[in-house]
């Protein structure tokens, strides 16, 4: 039995530009078989029984809701900002809880060990104090003033810098980060991950970017992001248990994990427990 709160959320199910005619993209959402296809110029998402799902097209992706949408899809104002390049990075399947995929995206402390010499490197492993809040107005989790030393923060970066980050959980399986833009110090690069929960232990992840970078070829930008995300994949597939434990005590966080603590609390409070483990096994 899937909680109504889970069913009433929006989830990414395809890259809009890649949707073709029937049979289109045959996939799953929250354990239900669905098809995403083009019919008379319109993108349709339907269940195996032929019933159609609520659909919206945003940020290059097709979003669907299995229940009754509780609200509009979250805004990313930077997506409409002039001068930004929007980059769809394709999809990667990962054998893990969709919530673990999001939590990993919110994590900085792993950079030196998993994204070695790119997003982090020993001895620069310290995570300073940063601020975390659950914003009641937008109902989102935010982390701000996050600083970390990075050898190559972006494809366009030419050396090590202390990067500033902001993290934002915009939906149970979608998160956005804002980080120092190497080409435009007064602006933020925006990177999202949109996670499609196929089942509680299997997801497909769509990285997406909105950057100020006119110079780097598209393929280089995509490959940089894919390189980063695929470095995480072997971690995500080897966490035990596969489900994200929401009970404190099953996993031990520290101050560097404040974003993840808030994310877990927010999920629990909202009853968004698809992909989560409630009772310590």
């Amino acid at each position: 039995m899937i909680a109504q709160a889970v069913l009433n959320e929006w989830y990414p199910v395809a890259m809009a530009a890649q949707v073709g005619a029937w049979p289109g993209r045959q996939t799953q959402l929250l354990g239900s078989d669905i098809a995403v296809f083009l019919d008379a110029g319109e993108i349709v998402v339907q269940r195996a029984d032929g019933s159609a799902l609520a659909v919206c097209l945003r940020y290059g992706h097709v979003w669907a809701c299995l229940g009754t949408p509780a609200h509009d899809l979250f805004p990313i104002p930077e997506a409409d900002q002039p001068g930004r390049r929007l980059v769809d990075c394709g999809v990667v399947r990962v054998k893990c809880s969709p919530l673990r995929a999001v939590e990993n995206f919110l994590d900085i402390a792993h950079f030196p060990f998993v994204h070695t010499d790119v997003l982090g490197a020993e001895p620069h492993t310290e995570v300073g104090r940063y601020e975390v809040q659950i914003r009641e107005d937008s109902d989102e989790v935010w982390a701000t003033k996050v600083h970390f030393y990075q050898p190559q923060a972006a494809k366009s970066a030419s050396g090590g810098i202390v990067t500033e980050y902001m993290y934002r959980v915009a939906a149970p399986t979608a998160a956005v980060l804002y980080k120092t833009c190497p080409n435009k110090p007064d602006a933020w690069d925006v990177i999202g991950i949109f996670v499609q929960p196929l089942t509680e232990e299997l997801c497909e992840v769509w990285p997406w970017m909105a950057l100020f970078d006119d110079a780097t070829p598209q393929a280089d930008l995509i490959q940089f992001q894919q390189m980063i995300f695929l470095q995480d994949r072997s971690i995500l597939e080897n966490q035990i248990p596969r489900l994200l434990p929401l009970d404190p005590g099953k996993e031990i966080p520290t101050q560097a994990d404040m974003t993840s603590i808030a994310y877990r609390r927010w999920l629990k409070r909202k009853g968004l427990t698809y992909g989560a483990q409630m009772v310590a096994a």
Binding site: D107, A109, H110, P112, F113, V114, E122, T125, S234, I235, N238, Q239, I240, P241, P245, E251, I252, P253, T254
Partner: peptide, 27 residues
């Protein structure tokens, strides 16, 4: 037990330095 108490990552993916074992995820 093949599980880092921090985030459940398998310690068998980790690395040995001297007399210590470190988790590959957060060290």
């Amino acid at each position: 037990n093949d599980r880092c108490p921090h985030r459940g990552m398998r310690l068998s993916h980790g690395f040995v330095r001297g007399e210590t074992l470190s988790c590959i995820y957060h060290g």
